[in-house]
Design a protein around this nucleic acid. Structure first.
Lengths: 347, 347
DNA sequence: CCGTAGTGAGATAGCGCTTTCCCGAATCGT
DNA sequence: ACGATTCGGGAAAGCGCTATCTCACTACGG
């Protein structure tokens, strides 16, 4: 429409200078009144400044403050895929905690490309964020790993804080997700339910999360006398789960009782593949996942999984980065097996 | 652990000044070499600067650039709830498009509180973002609406761009979601499938999205001879859907053939409530939603809904804000009824 | 040969803030 | 009553950049 008709004349935003002039005080006094510095300022002046600011609709320029103060109020968050519930739940936690600390979150998506990830870290470093949280999953032996580490080291030596969400990241602070132990506990429980013959549909080898979960699950199986008949690798996404499962079915399920998916979105995809093949998940073949994203309560049958408190993980990642070492809970996040109907007791 | 042992000595990040000195050129030349200004600079000098920058691991301070240039490379995005797939899909679209434009996205969540929303807009304005995208849902007659509009107007008159995601927002640019038409089309289709007696489980009155969808659906029903037997209001979330549906069932479904949920997450919750009551969605009572979030393909039975290309909506919101009026597609987003098995043909 | 453009590096004036530093006035102790 | 302290406002020096302005130097036409 005639947007221009409505548009008011473009004017520069009011500066602190304007406010000071309007209030008839110095720049210094205006600054002190509006941000509560250590110095006291006469109540009458303060009121005048506040009134002037309100009148001029003053909004402090955060970039200028950052430059002057030498520190920002920004948190940078890197995830693999914003639309994936695993990451979006975590992001919600980060944003919530950041909000409590009056910090602003800038968010970027690596789209599972380590090249992009490195680029993003470089760009985001220019923001001079107080904290950088990396939740995109690590890949073992990736050629960009060293460059990334160097970049993050540089960031840290400039006073920035880094926090990973992952398991065992040698060099940096990390919210530890005990994928291994969780998967192992899950396997034991499933053995306890009578399952013996398993398959896995999981992400590519090298994705650390996938590897750890698989290793943990395998350890649990071996302890209980179960076996992996088959392992299918596919994208670490819902569609990957679907395709992996479809492949598995096509090759013949012969005897496989339960499919362990590398994460919940894969499990959900796998269940749809099972159904599309004319079988019934839980009945014809059991399914288990990992993460306990919200939707797994709503699929049919509800999915057995390992619960990770994703929101809390996000919040803890920020705390871990902000707080002094030692002053913060850096124990591994508590994971818990949640048995649901997708893995009924056998016999 | 002994984090401190590893931690390198904290040093200030290299400044452009440092780079210039290292390269033995002036500040101006360094600046010109690193950002490609209009001015040409001697190739040899340029190389020297680039080398120095690399050596010192220089990363330009974005805040300082913003102050000096008087313009940022930031996009601010406001959503109701980051963990809700409706918003996270949209956010993914915004982030992707922003990335193409080499813009950085800062994200905040209103948590469906208009007071918070207003606060956030105020804070984010301090960032002087190029664009502000508001995707949190509008509430009719909310006391904060005027203040919000004023705030956004001020932002615009300072040269900022605002884009809403919504339907018919009088004053600002908006990606139009035709909730009304979509819901009406859905209702017609359902009538066509033989349904006559409906209930709705939707968000509180006043949430514009909920209202429009309900109104549209009702219009469709009336045109086709169907009726709303009951309308239940609940939170506009998965749990709201569950509770609303539970309530409906408790009161007695008597004769209701299909439940229209205000959005997909509610529909998914409603389906679980149906199941938990010992009934089968699709068979005992049909369910339809709105949005076509990814998970509705994976619930059982798959959900009938109205498809909104959420990712595209996010991308378009950014384009709408960035591009000149007229140079951009501002037609309503295409919505489409997707019939699935949650609404089988009757009889 | 000289005046005039053109070229491109460097000096410098900001950008919108914060935070010393300086200083007059008020307060206090003795 | 008087020097010693606070106290608190204002001037001004930055913060890390960009962009304008200056100016030495080259090239060239007449």
């Amino acid at each position: 429409m005639t947007d221009d008709a409505v548009e008011t004349r473009r004017t520069a935003p009011a500066t602190l200078h304007d406010v000071a002039r309007e209030a008839g005080v110095s720049l210094a006094t205006a600054s002190r009144s509006l941000n509560g510095s250590t110095r006291k300022v006469n109540e009458e002046y303060r009121q005048r400044v506040l009134a002037a600011a309100a009148k001029l609709d003053y909004s402090p320029n955060l970039s200028a403050q950052a430059v002057a103060r030498g520190t920002t109020t920004t948190v940078a968050l890197l995830v693999a895929d914003i639309a994936d519930p695993y990451f979006s739940q975590m992001a919600a936690g980060v944003v919530r905690e950041a909000d409590r600390e009056r910090l602003i979150v800038t968010m970027a998506a690596t789209e599972r490309d380590t090249e992009r990830e490195l680029d993003l870290v470089r760009t985001l470093r220019g923001q001079r964020p107080r904290v950088m949280i990396l939740a995109a999953s690590r890949r073992e032996g990736d050629p960009n790993n060293d460059a990334l580490e160097a970049e993050l080291r540089a960031f840290e030596s400039n006073g920035g804080r880094v926090a990973f969400v992952s398991s065992a990241t040698g060099a940096f602070r990390a919210v530890q997700l005990d994928n291994r132990a969780g998967a192992e506990a899950l396997a034991r429980e499933l053995i306890g339910l009578g399952y013996r013959r398993f398959a896995a549909v999981t992400g590519a080898e090298g994705i650390r999360t996938a590897d750890e979960r698989l290793a943990g699950f395998r350890a649990g199986l071996e302890a209980g006398g179960g076996t992996f008949d088959r392992i299918v690798r596919a994208a670490f996404t819902r569609d990957g789960g679907y395709e992996g499962m479809a492949q598995l079915i096509e090759q013949g399920l012969d005897g496989i009782e339960l499919v362990f998916a590398g994460n919940d979105v894969m499990a959900v995809g796998a269940m749809s593949a099972i159904r599309d093949a004319g079988l019934t998940p839980g009945t014809d073949v059991a399914v288990a996942g990992f993460d306990d994203i919200p939707t797994v309560r709503d699929v049919t049958p509800p999915l057995t999984t390992v619960r990770i408190p994703l929101e809390e993980v996000g919040r803890r990642a920020l705390r871990l980065a902000l707080d002094e070492v030692g002053a913060v809970d850096d124990s591994p996040v508590h994971t818990e097996v949640v048995l649901r109907e997708s893995t009924p007791r056998r016999r």
